[in-house]
């Protein structure tokens, strides 16, 4: 995997294309908490060679569009924008992919709490020790931050 600074992103992908990597397999975003990693996978059909190019977005979540290098990048750039809150610089398709509204934080960021996980009563919260005898610690579902826990100490029925 080739690690490049974000400033070199578009130039590196253009170099890949010029080296015969004719297919953009995919671009993926990964939330590393401290930064967002963006990885592009390119393939060369003549000899089935694959190359991965990665960059990291630290405080400033902006990356250059590479749609002029690989037209197929458009879908993945829309995904990065919608799911990770990454801003795409340069001419690109701004239409949303899956979201019907602009409401809410980018849903693939780890910091984003999914409403359904908060609003749906977690079956793991129920406990025979609700009679307080066993005095077990109440638990919280994965993906629901502590300050999101709405606990009235009673049942959810």
């Amino acid at each position: 995997m080739k690690q490049v600074p974000v400033e070199a992103w578009a130039a590196e992908l253009a170099a890949c294309r010029d080296a015969g990597y004719d297919v953009l397999d995919m671009i993926a975003g990964v939330d590393r908490s401290e930064w967002i990693e963006v990885i592009a996978s390119v393939m060369r059909t003549s000899d089935a060679a694959c190359e991965l190019v990665a960059t990291r977005l630290d405080s400033d979540h902006v990356i250059a569009s590479i749609t002029d290098v690989y037209a197929g990048a458009s879908w993945y750039e829309r995904e990065l924008a919608e799911m990770f809150g990454v801003r795409i610089a340069g001419a690109h398709d701004e239409r949303p992919l899956l979201r019907r509204t602009d409401e809410g934080a980018p849903i693939l960021l780890k910091s984003t709490v999914l409403g359904a996980r908060v609003l749906t009563p977690w079956p793991g919260d129920a406990d025979a020790s609700d009679d307080a005898k066993a005095n077990r610690r109440r638990q919280r579902a994965v993906g629901v931050a502590e300050d999101w826990l709405v606990s009235d100490g009673g049942s959810h029925e």
Binding site: T120, W122, P123, G124, A126, A128, S129, D131, K133, A134, Q139, A141
Partner: peptide
């Protein structure tokens, strides 16, 4: 099992 289920599809009720 109830707490590990990723899709929360198990429900269990018990008493002591």
């Amino acid at each position: 099992c109830v707490r590990e289920c990723p899709v929360w599809c198990i429900d269990l009720a018990s008493h002591t």
